[in-house]
């Protein structure tokens, strides 16, 4: 904990955040992480569904031809 606080203090002094460094940094980190997670989940699901649809369409086309 001591190490953690001193690291946060170091960073917030470096960024000029004063005594509220932990609050500001953590809210930025948490918010951006949540946004990134949302974008990542959406993108992954989009890619998966697109591949699945392509597979289904290809299979149906094959069975129609054959």
């Amino acid at each position: 904990m001591d190490l953690f606080t001193s690291i946060v203090d170091m960073i917030s002094t470096f960024l000029g955040l004063g005594k509220y460094g932990l609050e500001v940094l953590s809210s930025y980190v948490i918010s951006l992480a949540m946004l990134a997670l949302l974008v990542w989940i959406s993108a992954r699901r989009a890619a998966k569904v697109r591949a699945e649809l392509a597979a289904v369409e290809a299979r149906l086309k094959d069975s129609n031809d054959g």
Binding site: S12, G16, L17, G18, K19, Y20, G21, E23, V24, S27, Y28, S31, L32
Partner: peptide, 15 residues
């Protein structure tokens, strides 16, 4: 920084 809120005012850009 805001005088009363200090650097926490930076949270508004997300909040």
């Amino acid at each position: 920084d805001d005088i009363r809120q200090g650097s926490t005012v930076k949270i508004i850009y997300l909040h």
